[in-house]
């Protein structure tokens, strides 16, 4: 492993500094803002770590969708001033943190320095996996059960957030003219960008998750600009939210009935199957994340 370069050291210091600021600031607004900065810095770190997929996802989800969600919280009524942690709790917490850090360092140092065997195994199997890009092949073929369950978690989150809404959708706030104008440009641009990421995902970094985040961004923009379809929490939105899981389960059932076993794809049609599931999954992730946002946003308007 090469010695750390100046850029790496500065980057590591930056990540640690931003993380510390994000957790140490006493005000909610400061913490959230610093966390958004952390998203940007992390995207750069992932880029340095040879993980462009993750950099894309971090830019889209970490500082995009999650940022919008967190920032939107700040427009709600402020929290009642809570008690601060007592001195004993702080001391115990810091001690526990020090012990945990020491233990973690020991554990991580014990990890062997040799590269794992997985990249070679993936490279061996990737022909006929349905995607030339290794990460996409892992996500939608080799470890597709993980992705299925991840889609299920998203359904759970969207349903949970939706269940917390107490008021029906009211008339939206007046929309400033620049927002409408911006939405007209941004909405098609985001959808186009998402589609590009989706299609690019089979051969290069990109894929369903990043595309889904783009679609979610597009829906959020439409929602903020007052579009009726984006504010809907009706049957269609719910159907799209669960569509990702359903597509996966249907694929699993299909392969099981064809006698190959659950989610074992035949190389002859793996490409088509992967792209189909990815497309449904991307729209599903987009609608699901947008549903989470809309639910949060409606909760904001609970009359007091």
């Amino acid at each position: 492993m090469s010695p750390a370069s100046v850029l790496d050291v500065v980057l590591a210091a930056a990540v640690l500094a931003v993380a510390l600021v994000a957790v140490l600031l006493p005000s909610r607004r400061g913490a959230v803002s610093a966390f958004l900065v952390l998203g940007v810095v992390l995207a750069v770190l992932w880029a340095r770590l040879d993980a462009p997929d993750i950099a894309l996802a971090e830019a889209a989800l970490g500082s995009g969708v999650a940022g919008a969600l967190l920032m939107d919280t700040l427009t709600a009524d402020p929290a009642r001033p809570g008690r601060r942690a007592g001195r004993t709790a702080v001391v115990v917490g810091l001690l526990a943190g020090a012990v945990a850090l020491a233990a973690l360092t020991v554990v991580v140092r014990a990890v062997p320095d040799e590269p794992s065997l997985l990249p070679a195994a993936v490279a061996e199997e990737i022909h006929g996996a349905g995607a030339d890009h290794a990460v996409t092949a892992v996500l939608l073929n080799f470890r597709s059960l993980d992705t299925l369950l991840e889609a299920a978690v998203l359904v759970f989150a969207a349903a949970g957030a939706g269940a917390l809404v107490r008021t029906p959708v009211r008339a939206p706030d007046p929309v400033p003219a620049p927002v409408t104008a911006l939405a007209r440009v941004l909405l098609p641009a985001l959808v186009l960008l998402g589609t590009w990421l989706l299609l690019a995902g089979t051969s290069r970094p990109g894929g369903a998750f990043q595309a889904g985040a783009m679609f979610a961004g597009a829906l959020v923009v439409a929602f903020v600009a007052g579009a009726r379809f984006a504010a809907s929490q009706g049957t269609a939105a719910r159907a799209w939210t669960v569509a990702g899981v359903l597509a996966f389960v249907a694929l699993a059932a299909g392969t099981a009935m064809l006698g190959q076993g659950w989610l074992v794809l035949d190389p002859r049609w793996a490409g088509a199957a992967v792209l189909t599931v990815e497309t449904v999954l991307a729209v599903s992730i987009g609608v699901g994340l947008a549903q989470v946002f809309v639910a949060n946003s409606e909760a904001r308007r609970v009359p007091s």
Binding site: I54, L61, L69, S116, V135, V138, R143, D146, L154, A157
Partner: peptide
């Protein structure tokens, strides 16, 4: 790629659970 796919899944789940 396996670790990267794991992290990718984690990012999506973190965003959803944050919401």
């Amino acid at each position: 790629p396996v670790a990267q796919a794991l992290v990718l899944t984690g990012i999506v789940i973190m965003a959803a659970i944050t919401g």
